[in-house]
Computed example of a mutant assay.
Amino acid sequence: MFLSTNKLKTLRQEKGWSQEVLAKASGLSVRTIQRIEADGKASAESTLAIASVFNLSPQALKATSDEIEVNWTRKMIMKNIVALLVISGAIAMLIILGASAKLYIDVASGLFLILFLYAATIVTFGTHGMFKSLAGLKYLFTEEMVGGSQAQYLEQLYSSQVKFLYGGAFIGLIIGTIAILGNVDTYENFVFQRASAVNLIVLFYAAVLSEGVFRPLSIKLRTCDIKG
C-alpha cells in the first residue's frame, strides 16, 4: 500500500512531533517511519498503526488521486540506469559499425530539435508543462509508482512530445531537402550524397529521443496504476 508522504509529514509536523515521537506513539520503529516517509510504501499493519495515532482511517493516509507516489530503491534505480546504458551502447555500436561517429554529430540539428520540442511544449502546455516535463524525467529510473491525475497529465505530455519531435524532424527534413535540391547544380555527386546523409541526422535524433526516452516514459506512466 502506498501512503501519501506529504500528508504523513504534514500530520506529524502539525502535532510538532519528530519521527522518533511518531514511532513511539505508533509502536513502530524509527527506521520504519523514516522509510514510509521516504517512499510511501507501508504494510497494512503499519498503516493501521499510524492511522490510529492520528484518529484517521487508513484510507485517509493513502496517496490522493492527483499525486504520483514512487517507491525509490537503489536496486531499481541502478537497474534502469543499466537498461539505459545498454540502449545507448547498442546505438553507439551501430554508429561505429555504420560509419565514422563524426557523421552523426550535427549541433545545429540537435539544437533546432530541442528548441522546437520545448517551444511546442510551451505553446501547448505552458511553461509549467515544460518544467513538469523536465522534472518528470526522473521517473525513467523507477518502476513502482501509483499515478492518478498527475501521471495521466504527464503521460499526455510525453506522448505529445513524441509527436513534437517527429514533427520538428519532418520540418527539418523538408527544409534540408529544399536547400539541397535548390543547390543541386553546384554539387558534385559525392557532395550531394553527403549532404543528403547529413539531412537525415535530425530524424535520427528525433527517433533516439522519442523511442529511448519519451515514449517509454509515457507508457510507464500510462500503465503504472494497472500493474499487478
Score class of each variant (00 low, 15 high):
residue 58 P to G: 10
residue 37 E to F: 08
residue 204 F to G: 11
residue 39 D to M: 01
residue 227 K to C: 01
residue 72 W to Q: 03
residue 164 F to W: 09
residue 31 R to F: 01
residue 205 Y to M: 09
residue 158 Y to Q: 08
residue 1 M to L: 13
residue 131 F to L: 14
residue 115 L to K: 04
residue 98 G to E: 10
residue 159 S to T: 13
residue 77 I to Q: 07
residue 105 I to S: 08
residue 66 D to Q: 11
residue 16 G to D: 01
residue 57 S to R: 12
residue 118 Y to W: 13
residue 143 E to Q: 08
residue 84 L to T: 01
residue 92 A to G: 07
residue 146 V to H: 07
residue 167 G to S: 10
residue 105 I to K: 04
residue 194 R to Q: 14
residue 135 A to I: 07
residue 174 I to D: 03
residue 182 G to Q: 02
residue 82 V to N: 00
residue 68 I to W: 06
residue 190 F to P: 01
residue 96 I to G: 00
residue 6 N to W: 04
residue 114 I to Y: 06
residue 10 T to M: 12
residue 90 A to T: 13
residue 136 G to P: 09
residue 150 Q to T: 14
residue 227 K to F: 09
residue 58 P to Q: 09
residue 186 T to W: 01
residue 84 L to V: 04
residue 225 D to T: 03
residue 209 L to Q: 09
residue 129 G to L: 04
residue 103 L to T: 01
residue 79 K to F: 05
residue 67 E to I: 01
residue 157 L to P: 05
residue 109 S to N: 15
residue 89 G to A: 03
residue 125 F to S: 06
residue 173 L to S: 06
residue 192 F to D: 09
residue 31 R to Q: 15
residue 145 M to S: 03
residue 38 A to Q: 13
residue 205 Y to A: 02
residue 91 I to A: 10
residue 186 T to F: 12
residue 64 T to G: 08
residue 30 V to E: 08
residue 66 D to H: 13
residue 171 I to R: 03
residue 126 G to H: 03
residue 163 K to Y: 10
residue 18 S to Y: 08
residue 221 L to G: 05
residue 66 D to L: 00
